[in-house]
Nucleic acid binder design. Sequence first.
DNA 1: GTGACACAGTGCTGCCGATCACATCCGCGC
DNA 2: GCGCGGATGTGATCGGCAGCACTGTGTCAC
Lengths: 224, 224
Amino acid sequence: MDDVLRRAPLFAALDDEQAAELRASMTEVTLARGDSLFHEGDPGDRLYVVTEGKVKLHRTSPDGRENMLAVVGPGELIGELSLFDPGPRTATATALTEVKLLGLGHGDLQPWLNVRPEVSTALLRAVARRLRRTNDVMSDLVFSDVPGRVAKALLDLSRRFGVQSEEGIHVVHDLTQEELAQLVGASRETVNKALADFAGRGWLRLEARAVILLDVERLAKRSR
Amino acid sequence: MDDVLRRAPLFAALDDEQAAELRASMTEVTLARGDSLFHEGDPGDRLYVVTEGKVKLHRTSPDGRENMLAVVGPGELIGELSLFDPGPRTATATALTEVKLLGLGHGDLQPWLNVRPEVSTALLRAVARRLRRTNDVMSDLVFSDVPGRVAKALLDLSRRFGVQSEEGIHVVHDLTQEELAQLVGASRETVNKALADFAGRGWLRLEARAVILLDVERLAKRSR
DNA sequence: GTGACACAGTGCTGCCGATCACATCCGCGC
DNA sequence: GCGCGGATGTGATCGGCAGCACTGTGTCAC
């Protein structure tokens, strides 16, 4: 079985045999960059585990502006909310890269919840953790200025997707600056200027849909 | 058994006998306005159900500014996060009024989760719902201006705590304007001006720690 | 009744960041 | 290699809101 999957909250509590059984009841989905898994307002009670690539969860305001709630990577869940609290999807899920996911319907999950309480516990932990992160992001929106939020977002992305190289931490985030702006709740222009400023100070280097963090210490200080 | 309790997510799935049994393992806590149940950073793995009154969940930024995450009323949960996802408390809980709560330790809840999967399901739903609300608030922070957020907050409070009278919807929110400002992520002065403006238009009337909504329609339109 | 104190109302000033308006730049198809 | 569209870089302008400095106002203690 896949390594990524074994670390996913849904499988963490199961032994190999059970994990394989659960895995067998899931259906694989593949998306190309830009494809949407589901849209805000759609009905739906399926949950997905990302096995490869990144997906963004985002919303559109009445007047057409976009806001990104989260970037979801390998091992993480998408769409749990509509499953645990029935109702239409409250966000759109769109692939940032080529993506592979495993989907599971409400009916296929229920038996596991009834028989294996560890699965419930693991899911509770996953949702609770997500709620904590969301609360953190909300506080940042209130307390920090745009450059601070950009720094924070980059550090967060680096923790999840960064790889150490001799130059610094290479973070392939797969986001355009427009998308990065939606993630931190600011305009593209302001985010661009913040990035340019950081680059000018030697704290990072910009690349296409990626950054190399050169001075994590300073960035961390700026983010507070 | 208490009516409020029967509607609480923790008890909703249990029959009378089981509810009484669970209730018996909980300990009652009483707080006066201003008292704190726990502080940000405290260790702790107890969960509480509010049975009477209101509690605010809030955080303090490094430089001393305050941000309110939520107002929690009768039937709702407090402190679930530290229980499901072990770790220190990430917010402070402070009583807005005289408050009565029932507390439950991690060890006392676990057996219920193992034996009664409906309890897990109900808790998952409760946390999922909270996460949805939090996502909504986050989108508002990005999309709406301060008056819009104030209007939204008032409508939300009215849905939860309002009572219809012949004049309009009487909403005793128990928040000072300072606290209302912390809830919507704005300064007290700006919130005051927004409220004065709404009152001047005849959309609402201000009272001490309460408002009477006179024109819900207009407020709703302003909040979008 | 009279401080005292917390809360509420309101103008003024300055600044952060949205918006607009461009000027590149870069990857890709043909 | 040429052109085209999407992405990026950067200045100029403008408005919303924070911050400050006050002035009312209500409520409690004594």
